[in-house]
Design a binder for these strands. Sequence first.
DNA 1: TACGATTATATGTCTAGACATATAAGTCAA
DNA 2: TTGACTTATATGTCTAGACATATAATCGTA
Lengths: 242, 242
Amino acid sequence: MSLATDSADKPTLYKRIRADIEKRILTGEWPPGHRIPFEHELVARYGCSRMTVNKALSELAQADLIERRRRAGSFVRRPQHQSAVLKIADIRAEITALGRSYGYELIGRKLRAATAADRARLGVKKAGKVIAIACRHSADNVPFAVEDRLIDLSSVPSAATADFSREPPGSWLLHHVPWTEAEHTISAIVADDRTAEALDIAIGAPCLVIDRYTWRSARTITAVRLLYPGDSHRLVARFKGG
Amino acid sequence: MSLATDSADKPTLYKRIRADIEKRILTGEWPPGHRIPFEHELVARYGCSRMTVNKALSELAQADLIERRRRAGSFVRRPQHQSAVLKIADIRAEITALGRSYGYELIGRKLRAATAADRARLGVKKAGKVIAIACRHSADNVPFAVEDRLIDLSSVPSAATADFSREPPGSWLLHHVPWTEAEHTISAIVADDRTAEALDIAIGAPCLVIDRYTWRSARTITAVRLLYPGDSHRLVARFKGG
DNA sequence: TACGATTATATGTCTAGACATATAAGTCAA
DNA sequence: TTGACTTATATGTCTAGACATATAATCGTA
């Protein structure tokens, strides 16, 4: 909701330019790598001075949405600059970054009309189709995490035809769907028999639970629950603040 | 290290102005709430046009380091705008925000020359004095978290005379010491007998463990371990991303 | 073909003005 | 004392220029 509506009030010109460009990036109309119009082109389009256009583009650059290169132009950045906590969104990247071999195993995949429970979990009211996915990640052939995910197909129709038997859904989504907001809920449980079996740990051993919800604008994209062995896994988040 | 050294190269004027102000804020010379010089004063001091000063201040505002108010001036922001994960840094604020009554109990406080273990925990080589603090937080008289903290007195000398019997050290630090970086490590354990006793939970119940290290520039400020009952507590982190 | 020098161009920074606008502070009346 | 009105002022936005600088593209040469 934060940058939702500058509704009704008259935004200044440079803010309008910035919002116009931001919108095209977030909707995917201008994908990562796309060259956005030169300053002089925007000057012509909006009928203003170059400083006004420059201010809009500078703010987008400061927000890491675009990258500016002298003589070449300004380009939409790849969404790889998330906060540290979100980097763990891509478990494969996390494991390979540690120099360990990544293993992935699809346990189950079901395409179905959303049940009441599905709608509650995704936080949506309208019915629609969803994909439910269960899978397991491993590092050096040791179970690393089990994943239980729901994807809202009305937000991400292309997920219906994606091949999740080879690519983990988290990686697929990260590379195909731009997100704008995510919420993590972290808690701890002790392993029940099924969890213990899946993670190859003892019943009663501590587990870290991460529930993540991801939105694009106001639309829910996916809800996922990740279970990690709590004593062997550490979740590291590093911040810069003021 | 990120914005550490623009060493040797010649930074542009607006960057120098921005860096000058940033430095005074981070060193605490200009504390939260302090009014920084008006644009026209900075124009006089640096001998440049107002637009140059304005660019420096606008970027500081976009980075949430200062707040600008028409007619009033520009003010150093309180460090309350951290990422969601860091908001839980202040347990008191977290509890009162939920409308529950906050309780605090100092269990122990020791001022000592740093032992080898202390130095390892803080990640410093040089010896010096430290304060070790143990305390417990509660919500509506139910144990909420136990805290085990080490403060490096060479970084925060004023902590030696702070009264931690009434104010929790986390709140005190948050309000007295500006930080620039923090690292969280989150894991899960099962409660041993001492932990179970302190949190009033069963032995073997799941606990969430948060280890946090905080730095100002390259100096370690504090290291803290927080233990939460894992089934009743949830750590929520919300982000906006690209 | 490969490499080095030249050129064109988009961004980076800066100026000396201008008018708009929100609001702190002061003024005056009820 | 309180509330309404006025005023002064700091920031917000914008312009039409300028020169600096990094670099993609081109051209020329070995």
